[in-house]
Design a protein around this nucleic acid. Sequence first.
DNA 1: CATGCGTGGGG
DNA 2: TCCCCAAGCAT
Length: 351
Amino acid sequence: MRETAAQDLLDWYDTHARTMPWRVPPADRKAGVAPDPYHIWLSEVMLQQTTVAAVTEYFRKFVARWPTVADLAAAEDADVMAAWAGLGYYARARNLLKCARTVASEYGGQFPRTRAGLEKLPGIGPYTSAAISAIAFDQPETVVDGNVERVMARLHDEHTPLPAAKPILTQQAEALTPQHRPGDYAQAVMDLGATICTPRNPACGLCPWRTPCTARQAGTAPELPKKTPKKAKPVRRGIAYVGRRADGAWLLETRPDSGLLGGMLGWPGSDWSEAPAPPPAPPVDTDWHPLEGEVRHTFTHFHLILAIQTAWLPQDAAPSAGGFVPSAEFRPADLPTVMRKVFDLAQTSLR
DNA sequence: CATGCGTGGGG
DNA sequence: TCCCCAAGCAT
């Protein structure tokens, strides 16, 4: 690898950097403008396994409502979970609050600048610690995300499948990281992977690294990185009960903090299982009506088919699960997507 | 080290 | 319709 590879990429970044609400453009950065570490942390957590397009509006909403890490630390749990609803991987939201409260109470509202310091905080792992340290504080740390893995695999024509190849690709990425402008370099590699060195149909002709790229020379770029095959998703089934009290209040429950959709609002119902199971007792003993359709939703590791039962509940109902949310306080947007799908299907029969 | 953990968009 | 994928982390 030529010693100028990093500089070639930085030159490309100077003219091709994507614009994002949390990002300081390279020209401003050169002029001495530093990013807000709170913004970088928040965006990096939101971006874990999540697209820039999906994150952008959530980021704006969070920063408008909680402008500093101290503001976020002071927020109610339920408000943060509701604001995160729809973004997925809800453990991130719970860890986000834990982290904000730790930074506010134990670090005087200042994020640690080092990888090691950052990695002690909840929800911050090897990637995110490197990203915050590099981008927010311009430390020469190496970020290794899915983009970097793909770019390195192609640059070095590495055919070892992921995740076994991860240590090799990490070493290759470290060897390329410059001491000069490490924060912009980190963002540049990821922009390259997102816009040029894409998973399918990479635009090799436009790539600032087209000359040194060995996979391009070998014609193997589009098939890299190799990955070990994934398991098929099983189908699970369950029942959800959508109940509405005579005064219009909805019967909802806050799910346990750990596990699937942990800490989020949802409709009471059965467990979701592959094997047929006897329907559980409904949360209120009354006359429930099955809906015609079903809700289909796919999670990371299974497909779900949900049958829906609805009922109007007496004003004095004492549910065995969940509690009543007044109609005026209920916002479907506060539900995780699968639960919002249930609501969309059920609401027409409860008006 | 393998698994659990969401969602929406694109091919 | 389906599969793949996206700035991973915790256990």
